[in-house]
Design a protein around this nucleic acid. Structure first.
Length: 512
RNA sequence: GGCGGUGUAGCUCAGUCGGUUAGAGCAUGCGGCUCAUAUCCGCAGUGUCCGGGGUUCGAAUCCCUGCACCGCCA
């Protein structure tokens, strides 16, 4: 089974914020997870660069459109690089490959009769890029922009989305997990209770130039969503490239709830019309609620991922994202909550466990992994719990149950901390007759840490690597599929540990 | 206006098919340890499970209703 993991391509009319970062980190963690299991994995992100709003944003910035999109797209890419995002491909909708794919699909759907030419007149808001009905207006103005829309009548091309309504309803009904979590599946079904209208997929060039020309009518460019969604096919070099048959339809799309409609309705019907199998899952997540309410520029509470990463550390942010938000639900964001997680979970529990374990190994055994003796009950408990933790983690992670998966890992961390107190190695060290017992305890501790490093790799890649280095793990204990790494007693007695700075420095809570 | 969700400890949340004294983490208080990043371990709590009514031997859980907040659609 192969995994094709995607984030949305982010719209370049605004700079990267917390929400973009969350989607991207989740997708990255899952991609790393599948790679670790030795599964064929491909992960992609990128930017969506056409449409009227982008033109406007460029104008506002006083830049030629191309220059503007280059700049913002690069900014997104830099942010992901700073956050250790392991994308295999970075898609831009202005790239020639993408333009080619969009035109091919349009032509195909046109040829098969699912695109027709028609006339549409209505009240159009340029800000929303949408036609409005009288009843939707507030005081005759667009509800979002407070601007009176203009009546325009124009001829356009329409995609016969309505033709696939029943098919889509049946497909959703037959595949309960297809759109997940369930609340969003229900929302998609709610859309479909009303008759589906055909989708207007063109914009006249007289009005907007910044888009992909329709292959069958040069007077028009493609509607930005029809263009953007196809990036998922471009990323596999559809239709002739080698990736397409390898990775389609094993697709895991990750999106935030605001773009459920395009992904849950437009996209599957587009695929159906183009003769392409549906994706495997659409994974929809919620919003980060800010302390002052919704995140918005006017409130000045937009959080930049780059700032967080620099201030608190990449892995700290990644951990927080996955631990604090139940996938699919909204969650609260605050720097205070972040600091609390960092100190309580990372510095105190995990970081300190790691430091005290290695500290004792150096103090009592000169940094050499000892040979374990015959295990006692407490030791066997540790080994058994490690196995149980791994089993739970491996089950929960692909179900997107990140908080549960991590909480389970932390149960094991607590177990190891308790194990230390119970066995009291500092007492054993005082009695030469208990040398072998001390060896056994230290070995079990270090071996437990090795399992932690292995499992935390998708979540905190940088820290996991530091752990593996300090544990003296060679490539044979690290760069292998998890199934081979996760075997108790694999840590090699006699191998050398390495000292290092604290994995997760404790933050002072007073400072702000 | 229609549909849906949420409401549980000071805070953030878990509570499967209805079944003993309703749970976790953080914060708080007390005790223990000294290997460790003043960390760790143990103990202690505290609750009108949003209000009201109903079904049931038994309701945080099911039904009705009211309130509050949120989302989607129109």
């Amino acid at each position: 089974m192969s995994y094709y993991i995607t984030t949305p391509i982010y719209y370049v009319n605004a700079e990267p914020h917390l929400g973009h970062a969350y989607t991207t980190v989740v997708a990255d963690a899952l991609a790393r997870f599948h790679r670790l299991l030795g599964e064929e994995t491909r992960f992609q992100t990128g930017t969506d660069e056409h449409g009227e709003k982008v033109m406007e944003a460029a104008e506002k910035a006083g830049l030629p459109v191309k220059e503007f999109v280059d700049r913002i797209s690069a900014q997104f890419r830099r942010t992901w690089d700073e956050m250790d995002i392991s994308y295999d491909r970075y898609i831009r909708t202005t790239s020639p490959e993408h333009v080619r794919v969009v035109q091919q699909v349009l032509q195909k759907v046109h040829d098969s009769g699912d695109i027709y030419y028609g006339e549409y007149g209505g009240l159009y808001c340029y800000g929303c890029e949408t036609f409005y009905l009288e009843r939707d207006l507030i005081d005759g103005k667009c509800p979002d922009h407070q601007v009176a829309p203009t009546y325009i009548k124009e001829e356009n091309y329409f995609f016969r989305m309505s033709r696939y309504q029943d098919w889509l309803i049946d497909y959703i009904a037959a595949h309960p997990q297809w759109i997940r979590p369930e609340r969003y599946r229900n929302e998609a079904l709610a859309f479909l209770k009303e008759p589906l209208e055909d989708l207007c997929i063109s914009r006249p060039r007289s009005r907007i130039e910044w888009g992909i020309p329709l292959p069958f009518d040069e007077r028009y460019v493609t509607y930005v969503w029809f263009d953007a969604l196809l990036n998922y096919l471009t990323g596999l070099d559809y239709p002739a490239g080698e990736f397409y048959p390898r990775f389609w339809p094993g697709v895991q799309h990750f999106i935030a709830k605001d773009i459920l409609k395009p992904h849950g309705i437009y996209w599957p019907t587009m695929l159906k019309a183009a003769g392409v199998e549906p994706f495997r899952h659409l994974n929809v997540h919620g919003y980060w609620q800010m302390p002052q309410g919704k995140m918005s520029k006017s409130l000045g509470n937009v959080v930049e991922p780059g700032y967080l990463a620099q201030h608190y550390g990449i892995d700290q942010i990644r951990y927080f994202f996955l631990r604090e938000m139940v996938y699919g639900l909204d969650a609260h964001f605050s720097e205070e909550a972040l600091r609390t997680r960092i100190n309580a979970d990372l510095a105190n529990d995990l970081g300190n466990l790691f430091a005290r374990s290695l500290g004792m190994a150096f103090k009592y055994r000169k940094g050499v992994v000892p040979h374990p003796g015959v295990p006692e009950a407490a030791d066997k408990d540790v080994a058994a719990d490690a196995q149980a933790m791994a089993a739970d983690f491996l089950r929960l992670f692909p179900e997107l149950e990140f908080p549960k998966a991590l909480a389970r890992v932390w149960e094991f961390i607590n177990h190891l901390n308790r194990y230390i107190v119970t066995c009291a190695p500092w007492e054993l060290a005082k009695d030469p007759g208990k040398a072998q017992r001390l060896d056994t305890v230290l070995y079990h501790l270090l071996e437990g840490l090795r399992w932690l490093a292995a499992l935390l790799r998708p979540v905190m890649p940088g820290s996991a690597l530091k752990m593996s280095e300090q544990l003296g793990l060679g490539l044979s204990l690290w760069d292998l599929p998890l199934s081979q790494v996760l075997k108790w007693d694999r840590l090699l007695p006699g191998s050398l540990l390495k000292k290092g700075p604290p994995l997760f420095p404790r933050l002072e809570m007073e400072e702000k």
